[in-house]
Design a protein around this nucleic acid. Structure first.
Lengths: 145, 145
DNA sequence: GTTATATTGAAAATGGTTATCAATATCAAA
DNA sequence: TTTGATATTGATAACCATTTTCAATATAAC
């Protein structure tokens, strides 16, 4: 019984004593519809098309808010850009990142996850989160020299 | 038959038509001696103690130079800081990062590496490099609530 | 030594992100 | 529904790590 992102946000805001605004609803909708791995700038560009009045700062603020609400995840890739990913109920996944065209492919591998736990255990380390990124060339870009 | 970092750098510079300077030698020495995972700022602070005359920009420039020479590796962790790691001949390794005290533990696991290749193969992806970071609490910090 | 040019240090510039602040919108209470 | 306390917004300034600029200086080849 999954809730729509919109109500999820509304409930979060109410619970925190924060207010619902049309800006937040708009940004969330565009963020969710856009798919994943958007930078603040990319999101801002899309938001502008629908609601030119919305400011840069509001996009940043909303992204932080969503991250706080557990609805978005902040990730820094090696290219130096911070991207946000809509966080549905689905489990953790990692990324293949094409260094040529920028394509990002998601994957999951529970055997890798299990081995990570082994490593952590050996180091008496309690894992809270992890990040695995494989950088290289996607199938298409391998042909392009 | 491994070369000293100093000569390694000298050879690289000569090969590129660049010049050896006392600043570069000093920064390299301090960087190598300091151990790993230094931010530019941390390195600058250490350099200042020995050679107060050396400027901020020169430290940044030298770090980039070393990265270009394959003697240093640039890494962006989730805390937002870029750190540099001296890159000896030793193989690739990954990191356990304590979110409380900042400690960074290195590890290697060839089974994980092998599984990564499997994942890449399935996606027809050619891996050039990768990054695996486990964030959590180190043994010491687990006790500290 | 001369000379061409790479390098340096200081300061200004850059670029992504965050803080400031007056104007405005939201929501609960009256 | 009007009011009032306060959260939010948009524009802009501020931040901060990193990079660039530029005149002065050091280096390496001649």
């Amino acid at each position: 019984m999954k809730k729509h992102p919109a109500e999820q946000l509304t409930e979060y805001l109410a619970g925190q004593g924060l207010k619902s605004t049309s800006q937040r609803d708009t940004i969330l909708k565009i963020f969710v519809d856009a798919g994943r791995h958007l930078s603040a700038e990319e999101l801002y560009a899309r938001v502008k098309k629908t609601r030119p009045g919305i400011g840069y700062a509001t996009v940043y603020r909303t992204l932080k808010l969503l991250a706080g609400a557990g609805m978005a995840e902040e990730r820094r890739f090696e290219d130096g850009f911070t991207r946000y990913e809509f966080k549905a109920a689905k489990g953790h996944h990692d990324h293949l990142i094409c260094t040529r065209c920028g394509e990002i492919i998601e994957f999951e591998n529970e055997r890798i996850e299990a081995l990570q736990q082994d490593v952590a255990r050996k180091n008496r380390f309690l894992v809270q989160s992890h990040k695995l990124e494989l950088y290289g060339l996607c199938a298409e870009c391998q042909g392009k020299r």
